[in-house]
Design a binder for these strands. Structure first.
Lengths: 359, 359
DNA sequence: CTGAAAGCGCTAACAA
DNA sequence: TTGTTAGCGCTTTCAG
């Protein structure tokens, strides 16, 4: 029996009660901080708790309560800085209120998203922070609605008629990007994104296009959208540039605006393949910042999402609802910061030649 | 009362029982898949379940069981690809066995690590996968031991006398890095790391140094270790290079081997500051790979950790213990892959001059 | 101010 | 094969 990791029985509230010479009910009150307990008894309880190393079992305690002190968080993935920071933040905020955060990854699948939600419902979580794979109209939000769950939708959402939403102000940030690029002299820009993220893509695209065309009505904006996964985008982008090269020189865009992080990676990798360097051969801005973007050469320009604000307001809204808060759902948009770094230059300042591999 | 996210009462096992005209115990058996129930009754139960939309409450069900079907996972952070992938994997594996993974971030704090462990103990989790902040001898592992918790230690660990451990084979990978760098002609290499991660750093350093000196006994290996946080490393690195520059030319290392991801970022950022380019001015290899490393120019050489294997074996070991598996603790080392990319070249092939800013 | 009693939703013995 | 009984560990009336 060596090396057996034994699971000795933990002291229960009754152990404490009998050692303190009071009833379990009294112990419960003391633990809950009720002040109507005779100080002397309270002390006896504290002593017993101390001696036995007693801690209340939060799950057992939740059994008897209406709502469990658990918040569910569902993210499309855990692998990116953005969602990693988001979970970290949400966890802190939940803990501050005495709740435990249980996070799950939908792995970019709407089907799985719904399964997770069912599981969270089974767990009778007090509330859910859902970052949907696609948008606010998916089966998951539907499920939440149908089952009267309380929750908040974040990130890839704009607004909803049943839940509060909190997301980055994509449109404003994109307008800012447009302003910057136009200001640098760009008049032919390619925008890449993921069609699946309908709401967000639309907002980012419209925000960009609106401002860009207002500032430079004659400019050209091309759009390449992959449907639902990133891989196809790689091929589509290659095709797109092949076509550009086919025509007379100067037909290719002088800048690329990627609407999401993986798109930025794909663009960078395509530039590599063609031997293009930023910003001389082409400029690049990406929505979503990452730590590495400021140490590479050139540093990559990016839209920084206010993770803390999003997390903060999401939790605020969620707890307001949990505590019975009423009123129509609120849609919040948090302002982003646009960091123009070295990957953006002015067209014509570099060779911007026919794309020969200058390896 | 509009827009109130209502929490209607869910059907309990008794609701199902009475609708099916059987006892709660029978329903419980049907749900558990016990075959000794009369088919006719089972059918009635299924119908009632269907009709009421009943689902068992996993927490309530765990109350009566010895162990709860919950696995706790504690990571130093959620923001990096490595731990993000790790959590995703662990979650999958736990679910496959019918368990729920509850992940928490210790935010690189040993104090918090212990607190989380206490909470997980309160939750009576069946087992814990702990990726300690520092090493296997921290207060968290101590706590697990003292309380007879069952668990597995991963990542920043080598071996333990109480728990199974699973980690990347740092020593072998570092030896491989040494071989590659020596092969390219490097004879003066700087290694940077975090002193706090004692076990891991030691293994990586020894693995590297051993092989390097065996291959080129006359070579010079410098080491810069920051104690516990990353920021000081930045300053130390700056000082180090300042000193190099102070001496006669050629005194600076021709390659840097970073023992951890953030170190790679710091190195890159310091190179930027000095206007050094890889691999012409200096070569760089980092322990731990990331998606961006292959799209930057140059692509950054890195040691790829076998996240899937680590997660897989960790869970395997954990469940073996949960199911009563006996025997001495096992320490597993999973082989890494070393990806030599463009950031590594041969010394003397580039300018490698006195470090003028060639902006 | 305190404790007995009744349960939260479920499962495990055991008896029928 | 099924239902009864007795809890898991805790909280919450409610009578004393």
């Amino acid at each position: 029996m060596a090396h057996r990791q034994g699971q000795q029985r933990r002291p229960s509230i009754h152990d404490v009660a009998s050692r303190a010479g009071v009833s379990a009910a009294t112990v419960s009150k003391v633990m809950a901080g009720v002040t109507t307990v005779k100080p002397e008894n309270a002390q006896r309880v504290f002593d017993a708790v101390e001696h036995l190393g007693y801690r209340v079992d939060p799950l057992a305690s939740d059994m008897r309560r209406a709502k469990r002190r658990i918040i569910g968080a569902i993210m499309p993935e855990f692998e990116s800085e953005f969602f990693g920071q988001m979970v970290t933040q949400l966890e802190s905020l939940a803990e501050q209120r005495g709740y435990t955060l249980v996070a799950a990854s939908s792995r970019e699948s709407e089907a799985r998203e719904k399964e997770i939600l069912e599981r969270m419902h089974d767990w009778r979580v007090a509330g859910v922070v859902l970052a949907p794979v696609r948008n606010e109209h998916g089966p998951a939000a539907e499920f939440m609605k149908a089952n009267g769950m309380t929750g908040v939708l974040i990130d890839r959402v704009l607004s909803d008629d049943a839940f509060d939403t909190v997301s980055a102000d994509s449109a404003a940030a994109s307008a800012e990007v447009a302003r910057e690029l136009i200001g640098k002299g760009h008049r032919h820009i390619l925008v890449i994104g993921l069609g699946e993220q309908a709401a967000t893509v639309r907002a980012r695209l419209d925000g960009f296009r609106g401002t860009a065309l207002a500032l430079a009505p004659d400019m050209r904006i091309d759009v390449v959208l992959a449907e639902s996964t990133v891989e196809p985008l790689r091929a589509q982008l290659r095709d797109y540039f092949d076509k550009c090269e086919g025509k007379a020189g100067g037909q290719r865009p002088t800048a690329v605006y990627s609407l999401f992080l993986k798109g930025t990676l794909v663009a960078l990798s395509e530039f590599r393949r063609r031997g293009w360097h930023c910003p001389n051969d082409i400029s690049l801005v990406g929505f979503d910042d990452a730590e590495w973007m400021q140490v590479t050469w050139p540093a990559i320009a990016a839209v920084v999402q206010p993770v803390h604000q999003i997390a903060g307001h999401a939790m605020e809204a969620l707890f307001a609802r949990i505590e019975g808060g009423d009123g129509p759902p609120r849609a919040r948009l948090e302002p982003c910061q646009v960091l123009m770094r070295e990957s953006v230059g002015s067209p014509g300042n570099g060779p911007h030649s026919g794309g020969g591999n200058r390896q």
